[in-house]
Amino acid sequence: MLDVSEPPARSATFGGRGIGYDERVLTPRPWTEGQSLWARELLDEVPAGPVLEICSGAGHIGLLAVSGTDRTLVQVDADLHACVWASRNARSWGISSDIRHGTMSEAVMVDERFALILADPPYLPSDDVTRFPEDPLTAIDGGGDGLDLARQCLDVIERHLVRDGVALLQLRDVEQGRELESDAKQRGLTIAENRRFDGGAVLLLRRTTEGRADGRQAES
């Protein structure tokens, strides 16, 4: 007989609050609280406007980033189970988040612009994913060099970041960030900082004056 029972719910503490998830969703990594807190600091500097989180998983990074602010939040994930948990966690935290199930390129409307974009893609090379059998494959497999989804995140950032906005892109390590320098430059983005955390790394991305701004080619 087919087992259609739901896996047991799990809970983690993130930013001093509870985050729910189950075995079908990547376990929240404690170190990523640093990405949330960095984002929160940046929200005091960037223009008015909403926050976008792509590859949001259970939603914890984006929720902590906007908690206590008046910023609206949009969260996107290609995995339906992740979206379900992101929605539950948003309700638990009392935050109104627009949860969207779909690919990052399809779930964000062409004319939408964001003051801050959080990107938390899978970043392991495909050959390495078997080392982590407890993790959902779709949440960790970043393709041949581990950066396929990260490059897609750069595409979204290029199209949807406001001119003076910022993006924080999560990666495995600072070396991956160096590998993305040319990809970012091709999209009119610059890596303003490549910050190491105890568990990963996060890139701070800004637009360059020569790049694309608000979806249109910047004038010289």
Rank of each mutant, 00 (worst) to 15 (best):
A150C: 07
F197P: 05
E179L: 11
I191K: 08
Q176T: 03
D111G: 01
D148L: 02
R196Y: 00
G146T: 06
E158T: 15
L137D: 00
R187L: 05
P125A: 06
K185R: 10
A167C: 09
A192N: 01
R195E: 11
T130P: 03
R113H: 08
V162P: 05
E210Y: 03
T190Q: 11
D173N: 13
R159H: 14
R159I: 10
R178H: 13
G200T: 06
R196L: 13
N194K: 09
T138F: 04
G188N: 07
S126G: 14
D164A: 09
V129M: 04
D148V: 08
L180E: 06
V129R: 03
L205M: 12
A150Y: 11
A139M: 05
R195G: 00
V162Y: 09
D128Y: 03
D141N: 14
D145H: 09
F114S: 04
Y123V: 10
V129F: 02
E112N: 10
L205H: 10
E134L: 09
E179A: 09
L171A: 03
P122S: 10
L149Q: 15
D155F: 04
R187V: 12
D127S: 01
D128M: 01
L137K: 00
L118I: 14
V129E: 03
D173C: 08
R163T: 08
R172V: 00
L205K: 13
A192Y: 02
L205W: 11
A150V: 10
R207G: 13
F114G: 09
L147H: 12
E210C: 04
G144K: 11
L204S: 13
L116I: 09
V174T: 15
G177E: 06
F197A: 05
S126W: 04
E193N: 12
L203A: 14
E158G: 14
G200F: 01
F197Q: 05
D183E: 14
L189E: 07
D127A: 02
T130M: 01
K185W: 06
L149I: 15
F132I: 08
E134R: 11
L137G: 00
E175S: 07
G188H: 04
R178T: 15
D164T: 08
L168K: 07
A139S: 11
V202F: 07
E112L: 07
L118G: 09
I140W: 05
E193Y: 04
L169Y: 03
R206A: 12
